[in-house]
Simulated scan of single mutants.
Amino acid sequence: MSYDLILLPSGVATSIDEVDAYLAAQEGQPESATVADIAAEINARNAALPASDTFLATDSVGGAPSGTTLTVSSPYDALGFVRNLLFDLATPRDYAIYDPQLSWLIDPKDHIPVSVTHGGAGEFPYLTEELAHNWVAGLSDPNPYLIVERGDQRYIQTYRDQRGEYTLEYRDGSPQRHFGTVLADPDEVARIIWDWTTDPASVEKDVAWTGVEL
């Protein structure tokens, strides 16, 4: 079983329908120089590995008339590695990643580089306001949590319980500076997480926080 991720330029789409339309419009177009460069790097890294350790589900990627888009298929157990590699290659080139299995468009436009752990999908190297709202609202079993980290003991996290309520906590450098609250509105939770991502001090006035004993 393989897992597909698709690269496309940042800003060309803001919805899944627009992504699908853009991909369709690129079919048959000559491969762009940027896509060729990314594909060459992916192929070189894959070819440098023993056959038992390769991370592509195909012999190679690129070389197709797909314009400014690139589809990368990997075995499911290599997904985390491949996704991290694509972020490394795509983000500096102002490229977004589309995950058609989850219907997620991960676009670096206006992103902030932080460490994000999504309980259902793994780790990501940045957050945007749109992703914060999409991910918080979509948290579901078996791992309905989201963590955003800035460094050692500086993070904000939320967990969605079976009633649909969100336990929201943040830590500001030490166990003595660990606070929490419970909220019902996913948009409010996402807004607070995004506010913390842009300005950690701003969340202190957002809601009535209480100290958390761990």
Rank of each mutant, 00 (worst) to 15 (best):
Q29G: 05
Q29S: 08
Q29P: 05
P30W: 01
E31F: 01
S32V: 01
S32K: 05
V35Q: 00
A36D: 06
A36Y: 03
D37C: 07
I38P: 00
I38C: 00
A39Q: 01
A39L: 00
A39N: 01
A40I: 06
A40T: 10
I42R: 00
I42H: 00
I42V: 11
N43V: 03
R45K: 14
R45I: 02
R45A: 06
N46S: 09
N46C: 07
A48N: 11
L49F: 04
P50K: 09
P50V: 02
P50S: 05
A51P: 08
A51Y: 09
S52L: 13
S52D: 13
D53S: 13
D53P: 09
D53Q: 14
D53W: 07
T54V: 12
T54D: 06
T54W: 04
F55H: 13
F55Y: 10
L56H: 01
L56Y: 02
A57E: 03
T58R: 15
T58W: 11
D59G: 14
S60N: 12
S60C: 12
S60M: 13
V61I: 08
V61L: 02
G62E: 01
G63H: 10
G63D: 03
A64Y: 08
S66Y: 08
S66T: 15
S66I: 12
G67V: 03
T68W: 15
T68N: 15
T68G: 10
T68V: 13
T68Y: 14
T69V: 06
L70S: 01
V72R: 05
Y76A: 15
Y76V: 13
D77P: 09
A78Q: 14
A78G: 11
L79H: 06
L79R: 10
G80Y: 04
V82L: 01
R83S: 06
R83H: 06
N84Q: 14
N84A: 12
L85R: 05
L85W: 03
L86A: 05
D88F: 09
A90P: 04
A90F: 02
A90E: 00
T91N: 11
D94V: 07
Y95G: 04
Y95C: 09
Y95E: 04
A96K: 07
D99F: 05
P100M: 02
P100A: 04
Q101I: 08
L102S: 10
L102F: 08
L102K: 10
S103G: 11
W104G: 07
W104C: 11
L105M: 05
I106Q: 11
D107V: 03
P108A: 05
P108N: 06
K109P: 14
K109T: 14
D110F: 09
D110G: 08
H111D: 14
H111K: 15
I112C: 08
P113R: 14
V114Q: 04
V114R: 06
S115K: 11
S115G: 13
S115Y: 08
V116N: 00
V116I: 10
V116F: 02
V116G: 00
H118N: 15
H118M: 15
H118V: 15
H118F: 11
G119T: 04
G119W: 03
G120V: 12
G120M: 13
G120N: 12
A121L: 12
A121H: 14
A121S: 12
G122P: 09
G122F: 07
G122A: 07
E123I: 04
